[in-house]
Amino acid sequence: MAAKRRPKLAVWKFASCDGCQLSLLDCEDELLAVAGEIEIAYFMEATRAVVRGPYDISLVEGSITTPHDAERIHQVRRQSKFLVTIGACATAGGIQALRNGRDVDQFMSIVYARPDYIDTLPTSTPISEHVKVDFELRGCPIDKMQLVELICAFAGGRKPMIPTHSTCMECKMRGNACVMVAHGTPCLGPVTHDGCGALCPSYDRGCFGCFGPAETANMSALTGQLSELGLESRNIQRLLRTFNTNAGPFREESSRHDS
């Protein structure tokens, strides 16, 4: 009897910090089991050995910021049966999307000795603005157990158990008191997609929104409360303009706070 062909997995990098790819390498306890069932065919951060495509599942990290990458993502899509974006860059454009709507030529003239060497786009955009994406895994960085769950679900041909509700649900399940209610700490938890296990509120910090907007996020209701807590408009804007600055609800709400 022929051995079952293992599905081939590829990991691709675009404009990103590599932190999400590291989350995969960080799955120390699970990685060997995963490698036993899934052929890690293309993963430059882990190995130079390359197995040619097409690939059954592609994990795409990073956003599209150059003309070259805008082409390359189409090649990735053509070689991939199932394409998953991993992290805030690939899913929303990342922190580098702060450039969107700004004068990128001016940035280059200030930052680089030879701006003429730089070939970049005026925007940082998510993968979904370029090709069809089958699943978006949120987070900056992604949660490694959500990544393992996604791969297990893919291997089992089932739906991944990755809920889209707010971070508050997990926060309360952990038994936390609300940092906003009990301490007056500004927190994006009520509008932020679950996935981190309410990490920051569990350590007495407000949520930074690393996982981007939750389903049906009511942004103006939250920012209204943040200003009640004394947060100035420009600070509300700063809170929303981080890793997920270009995610629809965060982007639109933050633009309402232009001073």
């Binding site: 089991a33 995963v34 069932e37 679900a153 707010s166 508050c168 938890g189 009520p190 996020a217």
Partner: peptide, 26 residues
């Protein structure tokens, strides 16, 4: 905010959901 805090802190709310997991080997 539809954040679910009211239902999480309510002492009578009883709703739960089930989630099915499989491991990588199936």
């Amino acid at each position: 905010l539809a954040c679910s805090n009211c239902t999480m802190v309510c002492p009578t709310c009883f709703c739960s959901t089930t989630e099915d997991y499989t491991d990588i080997t199936g």
